[in-house]
Design a protein around this nucleic acid. Structure first.
Length: 897
DNA sequence: ACTCATAAC
DNA sequence: CAACGGTTATGAGTA
């Protein structure tokens, strides 16, 4: 009986595995500090590729310790030189790979003097002679030279779970040559990764052409003298020695003396005990729970194999959508829907293709946008009866809104759920997030390219399959993702906060904020004049012209030519940051000018020119996008433009706000903000009586803190400096205090800062206790939570490096505070939106700035809106401490704060 | 693509 | 002993 022999190129696959999950490197670390990304990917490979194959014999071959010990090292000194050293994050995973291979029932083998290739080459010939079927899995194209009718090579393409199958026919079709000629192809081209040259200027194309004409290297050189004079001929003659050396280096040994034979390679079933031990050591939660489930149900391996095959993308055929299919789809209870666009900015991006379907009726895709205008499609999108599954509901709401449709009935937003489950390493990309659930599909980058290379593939079926697979992935992942959500107790956070909020945000974005472009341009002109005259003065004082925007040139002037003292350095040179320049200002009058120039240049470029560039000429509005699934704490962020960092602190900057106006005459801008929300949250979750008292009595919290840390009477007067110090201490507490940080911020001695903190903790003991407890929880669980169970994992919390660990500890203290404040304003936004609708107000919510909401409304609605908004914000959540809301209104955003 | 500087809360 | 407050986005310069 013919046997199935599996030979695996361990080194090349391990490398592939490491880089396939390189983006996840920082996420995948055990509490002991061991990186596991390559191990996770390699395990996926063993489970999803090897297990379903059920081979009779299986071996993972490894390179001997150093290439120099092989004959190739003797033959060519630079063999594999110049190869990037494997990073330590990779090396540390290596020992576990062998253990993993063993536990999965395969054998490991390496032999001094041989590379993995040679072991595989030799065994493949042995197997072939015995009449067996040999399958080689590798990431190295060299091995394809071994292909015969009974030896196939599976070459990994992207990552380690997608392979291309090389047979003699396939090679002929792809290259037009036979497997044996692969060696001579390499002889001519050389190998950059192994660092040996072939013939100068001969690449793959030329090599294939020559081989088709002359068949092999010997025959080619026999005919070189007959070739007509050319640069190539010269190169062939000059590099003849190099070509023959490359030929030797590229030839895989097929007759090495091995200490093992086929009979030593019998494949055993995976060993459950060994796997459990290993997975526990590596903290593979998913793999462990899968293993447990399987052993509990006593599933046989055929079923396990089927399961893992499904996981890595056994996609259903994607069908072309038409009216008839749409009618069929409209009868379904739940459907996945997905649109691909030409860019991230869904306010203006074009739709490329879309897909819709479920596991019952299958998946349909189309590029025909007219179908989206049909009544049937409208029913599907707008009906509450059809539960929709999407990836990024907010983006889809806006895209559909542009078509005049009102998205409703959303059940599952995979992006939101994935973000709530784990914020770390979330790149907002479907393919990556699906990978976390063991589902693999092509990334947009693979299909469309990125940056300047972005292009829609000519072959329409590629695009249709891509969106179709996305829809299927989204559909399939719903139950698992919701189960995880439940396990985290995050059902409420998703269903009652984030999902409803996404539609509130969509509306705000689509509404847009009107910009008075004339006003903004005029400000820009004035700034330009001031910038020009500052520039003149600076050049005159410096005695030369230079680029003031260049920190490098500025550094040279200040610290070398003028000889000012270096106060701080950056990685690349002298620091010229504000705090540095402020210290230098008394010593050199030019510095004041530079500071003024800097401020104006920033305002002009970012807020005048930058803003004008993104105003939509059709409606004179800016339509920001609020990123709901980006920050580690649960806050929103805002891009294109960022409306959350419009200047406020300096008068010159604040004037920019004059350009933000209502969209109608006789309307106003109204702003409402939470006062001291983070300190109130802190007081509430720690239950500190002293702080609670201050807030319940609505006292000046910074003054009150000053009395405490300076040991003054309850009614003692506080001077400005004392208050400023106390305010800095309060801020420090919220950010996860350190004495050094506070000393730097207040410009005081470290021991004074330390004593402030100690006194603070004596006066607010519950805060001290909470800080210690939250750090302890983080060390125990690896994550912290907000009042609404928003979770933040802290992969570095047990790091050996003090800095890294300290940073994680401060984060552990800050995130529950910042995140709970984010929870509160999000709840308020949903309730405010609802209240505005219920009361039939015309007012529109436009922007959220972390503790502030901005609206536009008709003048006559102002007081009603003020009452509505402040009450709803006040009452958004039930805390032990009252919340306080302040509000302002006026003709522009300038007056509304 | 990265670093630096600076805008906000 | 060391390093040193949290969360972001954007523009300009440099590589």
């Amino acid at each position: 009986m013919s046997k199935k022999i599996l030979l695996i190129d361990g080194n090349s696959l391990a490398f592939r595995a490491f880089y396939a999950m390189y983006q996840q490197l920082d996420r995948m670390v055990t509490p002991e500090g061991l990186h596991t990304n390559a191990l996770v990917a390699f395990n996926n490979f063993l489970e999803s590729i090897v297990l379903p194959m059920q081979p009779d014999m299986a071996l993972v071959a490894w390179d001997a310790r150093s290439g120099k010990e092989t004959f190739r090292g003797d033959l060519y000194d630079d063999y594999k030189a110049g190869r990037d050293k494997a990073p330590s994050e990779f090396k540390e995973q290596f020992p576990y790979l062998r253990e993993m291979v063993e536990a999965h029932g395969l054998h490991n083998y390496e032999q001094i003097g041989l590379e993995a290739d040679d072991i595989i080459g030799t065994l493949s010939r042995v197997g072939e002679k015995a009449g067996d079927q040999v399958i080689i899995i590798t990431g190295d194209q060299d091995l394809t030279q071994l292909v015969t009718d009974s030896v196939t090579v599976k070459l990994t393409k992207k990552g380690v779970t997608q392979v291309e199958v090389y047979t003699p026919d396939f090679i002929m079709e792809k290259f037009g040559i036979t497997p044996a000629q692969i060696i001579d192809k390499k002889a001519l081209t050389g190998d950059t990764s192994d660092n040996y040259p072939g013939v100068t200027k001969v690449g793959e194309k030329t090599a294939l052409k020559l081989l088709k004409e002359y068949h092999d290297l010997d025959n080619l050189y026999a005919h070189v003298p007959d070739m007509k004079a050319s640069k190539m001929k010269e190169n062939l003659i000059n590099d003849k020695a190099s070509a023959y050396r490359a030929q030797k280096l590229a030839t895989i040994i097929t007759d090495a003396k091995l200490e093992i034979g086929l009979s030593d390679l019998v494949y055993r079933e995976p060993e459950e005990k060994g796997l459990v031990t290993l997975f526990e050591k590596l903290h593979f939660k998913q793999a462990l729970s899968k293993l447990r489930a399987h052993s509990l149900l006593d599933e046989d391996f055929a079923e396990a194999a089927e399961d893992s095959e499904k996981k890595q993308g056994n996609f259903a055929a994607v069908k072309e959508l038409n009216e008839a299919a749409l009618t069929q789809l409209a009868k379904e209870k739940s459907l996945a829907f997905h649109i691909d666009t030409t860019g991230d900015n869904y306010h203006q991006a074009d739709m490329i293709a879309y897909a819709i379907g479920n596991d019952q009726v299958g998946y349909y895709a189309s590029r025909d946008l007219t179908l989206l205008g049909s009544e049937t499609f409208k029913r599907i999108i707008e009906s509450q009866e059809i539960a929709l599954r999407l990836f990024n509901a907010k983006a889809h709401w806006v895209l559909l809104h542009r078509l005049g449709l009102n998205l409703a009935g959303v059940d599952f937003d995979f992006l939101l759920v994935a973000y709530l489950l784990d914020t770390v390493g979330n790149d907002n990309v479907l393919s990556t997030l699906a990978g976390r659930f063991g589902r693999y599909l092509a990334s947009n980058e693979e299909i469309y390219g990125k940056g300047a290379k972005f292009a829609i593939p000519e072959d329409e079926t590629v695009v249709l399959e891509h969106v179709g697979h996305k829809a299927q992935t989204i559909f399939d992942l719903r139950d698992q993702a919701f189960a995880d959500l439940d396990e985290h107790e995050q059902g409420h956070l998703y269903h009652d906060i984030e999902l409803p909020l996404s539609f509130v945000l969509a509306k705000m974005e689509a509404q847009g904020f009107t910009v008075n472009e004339d006003r903004l341009s005029k400000m820009g002109q004035e700034m330009e004049e001031q910038i020009a005259s500052l520039k003149d003065e600076i050049f005159q004082m410096a005695g030369e012209e230079f680029n003031i925007n260049s920190t490098k040139q500025l550094g040279t002037l200040l610290f070398e030519k003028m000889g000012l003292p270096v106060i701080k350095k950056t990685k690349t040179g002298y620091s010229t940051a504000v705090e540095v320049l402020e210290k230098l200002a008394p010593q050199a009058p030019i510095v004041e000018h530079i500071l003024a120039y800097r401020q104006l240049a920033k305002l002009k470029s970012t807020y005048v020119d930058g803003l004008l560039a993104v105003v939509d000429p059709a409606d004179h509005k800016v339509h920001t996008r609020f990123l709901q699934t980006l920050t580690q704490t649960g806050r929103l962020s805002s891009v294109d433009p960022n409306l959350q960092n419009i200047p406020m602190r300096t008068e010159a900057g604040r004037k920019i706000r004059h350009a933000f106006v209502p969209s109608h005459d006789d309307w106003l801008i109204f702003g409402a903000d939470y006062s001291q929300i983070e300190l109130r949250v802190l007081a509430s979750i720690t239950g500190d009586p002293a702080m609670e008292h201050a807030f319940v009595e609505d006292e000046d919290i910074h003054a009150e803190t000053a009395r405490k840390v300076f040991g003054l009477a309850d009614d003692a007067p506080i001077d400005a400096d004392q208050r400023r110090t106390a305010k800095a201490v309060n801020f420090g507490i919220v950010y996860g205090i350190s004495d050094f940080g506070l000393s730097k911020n207040l410009n005081i001695a470290r021991k004074d800062a330390k004593s402030f903190i100690e006194t603070y903790f004596q006066e607010f003991p519950k805060i001290h206790q909470w800080m210690a407890a939250i750090k302890e929880k983080a060390h125990q669980d690896g994550y912290v939570e907000t009042i609404e169970h928003r979770r933040r994992y802290l992969p570095d919390i047990n790091a050996k490096n003090f800095n890294t660990r300290s940073f994680a500890e401060r984060t552990a203290m800050n995130s529950p505070i910042q995140g709970s404040a984010a929870d509160i304003i999000k709840i308020a936004m949903i309730k405010v939106n609802q209240a505005i609708e219920e009361r039939g107000l015309q007012a529109k919510m436009l922007v959220q700035v972390h503790d502030e909401l901005v609206f536009e409304c008709p003048k006559e609605e102002l007081e009603q809106l003020r009452e509505t908004v402040t009450t709803v914000m006040d009452q958004a959540v039930k805390l032990a401490i009252p919340l306080k809301v302040e509000s302002h209104a006026g003709p522009t955003w300038y007056e509304a704060k």
